[in-house]
Write a protein that binds this DNA or RNA. Structure first.
Lengths: 274, 274
DNA sequence: CTGTATCCCCATGGATACTG
DNA sequence: CAGTATCCATGGGGATACAG
């Protein structure tokens, strides 16, 4: 790659060399996963790093192997079965990743909001991610288990598809909790059950780019508002969606709907006291 | 670049993001130079990182600026004069580079190769030394006696001018032996005598910086190869040089040339046996 | 199961010319 | 001096098919 000839202090040159070992698109990710997950087979690795192609994963493993960061061990021939594990050199890269993570937490995470995208379909989360990744830190999950796991990233906004595998709408919202602002994505014609589902806003699929951006931005702007205002806005959003679809007459026949309307009035009176 | 969606532990994700800020070919180098050299103008930066083009340097500085790693300050308009300096975030990257450098020193080949420069003209060796002394340990000699003497430093590469006072090309190569990789520098139009002169590669003078660096690096990378491969590469280099200068018809009239071609075929058949 | 072999796209970055 | 504007080459990486 010919990056030499530069006037780099001698004590920094090993750093540049070391960095070049991590320069492939998937090199750092694969190294981290191999180091963390211990001895791991090719296909399990593929499933844990889903967006990498087999060819590139193979090349990446080769390169990391050549660099001495991981070791390849043939566990059985026919059926061929191999295992990749971090070498000592690979494990020692932990110090580098620690330093990077420290830097990131201090200088990155504070400024850029994190948005967690939860949908069973990878192509969907990939599309959404493409729309927003230049403005936010994006985390993608595709099952309820992954969701529970990645909530540790403390996202500012969760975009939650109601059909996420592994849970119904209510349990999903319980999993997410109220720390992040939550935008629920629904596919079917919503029923009045939506009303006590939880979440701060609701969008019907399919979602277009501008709507998603505006909705996320609106939620970010509401961060820190009072619980009362927050619940009022959430109710408002759900009611508006329902009323845009079902005739008011039908809705008024529903107990849940009337309860919700009453709750709104209650919240409004609380707000009026200020 | 869409690297999300992977099963990376949450504590590692800020590391990946931070790393992505250093992912451009010249990003780390430029950041290091800016951080070390303090406030620095565009063109001085360009001269300290000689292999980067103006366009790419400009883009790199933009990206580092957007990432908050460096700051751009206009010092004077007309003539326009700007200065780039590291921000606190940029300086904090030192911890990352320290970790990388520590890793590199521990796990990369830590021995700095030694290059012996042999040329009758002190100004020439001084120039060459200036080109390479930040990457290699440099020894300069200016006579055959000094050469024999300094070979005790056990150099990895010898850069040998054919006109070194005190010996002809053949005796020089006999003096050097085959332990170091040898690059021969020739000034005149080479004759077929070159073919049995010895040495691993040949350069015609004047030699430019990038060529010398690349040729030395190529020889270092070939260290430890089999004698057959080594001779094959050496023959190839000499033949290529001759053929680039003399018409093939003339060469084929020469016994030495035909012998050499035959020797190449012989070596190739040896290599083909593997 | 674990990879090659192929083909192709496009982002990165290089060269050159021009501008405020 | 400090950059854009333009054009173009390269190769890293993606998709798919196939092989040991």
């Amino acid at each position: 790659m010919s990056r030499d000839g530069a006037d780099v202090p001698p004590d920094r040159q090993p750093a540049l060399q070391a960095l070049s070992l991590l320069s492939g698109k998937w090199h750092p990710t694969v190294l981290i996963v191999v180091a963390r997950t211990g001895p791991i087979g090719f296909n399990e690795l593929l499933s844990r790093v889903p967006d990498v192609s087999g060819k590139v994963l193979s090349e990446t493993l080769d390169a990391l192997g050549d660099a001495g960061l991981i070791r390849r061990q043939v566990v059985s021939e026919s059926p061929l079965r191999v295992e990749y594990a971090a070498t000592e050199a690979g494990r020692d890269m932990d110090a580098v990743f620690d330093a990077l993570a420290d830097w990131g937490r201090q200088h990155l995470e504070t400024a850029v909001p994190t948005v967690l995208l939860a949908d069973g379909d990878r192509r969907i989360t990939e599309m959404y991610a493409g729309w927003i990744r230049d403005r936010y830190t994006v985390v993608r999950v595709h099952t309820t288990n992954e969701l529970a796991d990645q909530l540790r990233t403390d996202p500012d906004v969760v975009v939650l598809d109601e059909g996420l595998p592994g849970g119904d709408l209510h349990s999903l919202h319980r999993t997410v909790g109220s720390a992040p602002r939550t935008i629920t994505l629904i596919g079917d014609r919503p029923t009045v059950d939506l009303l006590d589902a939880g979440g701060d806003d609701v969008l019907r699929k399919p979602v277009v780019r501008s709507t998603l951006l505006e909705t996320i931005e609106a939620q970010l702007e509401r961060q820190g508002e009072s619980p009362v205002r927050r619940e009022r806005a959430a109710m408002e959003a759900r009611l508006a969606l329902l009323e845009s679809i079902h005739p008011t007459g039908r809705l008024e026949a529903s107990e849940v709907y009337l309860d919700a309307r009453e709750r709104v009035a209650e919240l409004d009176s609380l707000l009026a006291d200020d």
